[in-house]
Design a protein around this nucleic acid. Structure first.
Lengths: 211, 211
DNA sequence: TCAACTTACTTGACACTGTTAGGTGGGCGA
DNA sequence: TCGCCCACCTAACAGTGTCAAGTAAGTTGA
């Protein structure tokens, strides 16, 4: 009597088909440019069929966002093996920049758009699991650095320090993404500027190495 | 025969009325939430009347944006009196943060939205006039600091260095604006973080003072 | 004075968006 | 076989930015 299981599987399949189409289209054209009708047409369904699987467009976006956050967590998680916390912090930064360059539209939705309110309760990502929670990984790395006395004494709050590092790199990325076509500014290469920014942030927050 | 002048004046008046209404509504509700119909209703005209004065909604936004940039330039221009370039850089940073806090919606449109392509040629702001061109002011200040040997030797490019400072502060502001309602992150106060960021940026780019 | 022209503005629509109420039809359990 | 369930569709609604075609006032020239 596996009919129920099959039904569920089929439902999950079309759900996945919607997600796949939406992901691809969002990534190449941006969320704003992709309509529900276009997604539906792509998978050869009616627009309303999507609403049978997702409450609305926002729910669809949020779901994909969660997957993106997990992906980011995994990619940053590779940096975790480095023992030295400050060096690890650097690597997290460069990996983060790389993620933004590779998935610009994803980055835009994840960090440059006010995601509509939703509860994280049901979420599939586990907080504080460094394999999945990118922010948790950052905070943990910074906290290790603080514990090891690597940072200047005024930085005692791991969250504050983490947010400073995050913001600095995010600033380079987001400003470029939003304004790079503005001819008023004589833009420098983003990756280079971001690398410089990481240097500045580390130098500005750490204590000089004991010689 | 001043009829032509009167006509022009009347035209300019309703144009200004449109701009005033749009500015106020954009500032309080955000660009996305304000419709052409709503602006028209506010000034008791038909939506299409607006199109007689502005090509489309983007043109309206761009025009207001230019005014905002000029305002920012003026506000930052007050910092210009300080002689020491590094100290002036700090003051520009805090004034910039203050602008963002005071005019969050303006800030959002100015720096967090990909403004549709347009030529700056016709623009009323004068480039390199520090009273109006905020970015020019920043670059000039940074360049002075470089000339005075205040920055570390690897920073020779005024634009690059300016963009690093700008990005760092913008990162704090924009990340807060976009994600502050995200309960996943244990946010710290924006103004405090921004002040800390300025310290980090200055310390990370300047040479230590000669004792 | 009166016709021709200009122009600020309106009417009424178009194409598009996200979204929903109400149907349809095929497979399932009883 | 009856009736239910439910994935999916049809048809529409309200809202968006925008435009072609009109209108009515005012100016200009003979």
């Amino acid at each position: 009597m596996g009919t129920k299981e099959r039904r569920e599987r089929e439902r999950a399949e079309t759900r996945a088909r919607i997600l796949d189409a939406a992901r691809e289209m969002f990534a190449t054209q941006g969320v704003g440019a992709v309509t529900m009708r276009a997604i539906a047409e792509r998978i050869e369904y009616t627009p309303t069929a999507i609403y049978h699987h997702f409450k609305d467009k926002d729910a669809l976006i949020i779901e994909l966002c969660h997957a993106d956050f997990r992906l980011l967590g995994v990619e940053l998680g590779r940096s975790v093996r480095i023992a030295d916390p400050v060096e690890r912090l650097r690597r997290i930064g460069t990996a983060y920049v790389q993620f933004a360059i590779t998935h610009p539209h994803h980055y835009h939705v994840m960090f440059m758009t006010a995601t509509p309110a939703h509860d994280h309760d049901d979420v599939s990502i586990q907080k504080n699991n460094p394999e999945e929670d990118a922010y948790g990984l950052l905070v943990q790395t910074v906290a290790e650095g603080i514990a090891a006395g690597r940072f200047r004494p005024e930085f005692t709050d791991a969250h504050e320090l983490a947010q400073i590092h995050w913001s600095g790199i995010h600033g380079v990325i987001s400003l470029h993404m939003a304004k790079k076509s503005d001819a008023w500014i004589d833009w420098r290469d983003m990756a280079t500027t971001a690398a410089r920014m990481i240097d500045v942030l580390v130098r500005g927050t750490t204590l000089p190495e004991e010689a």
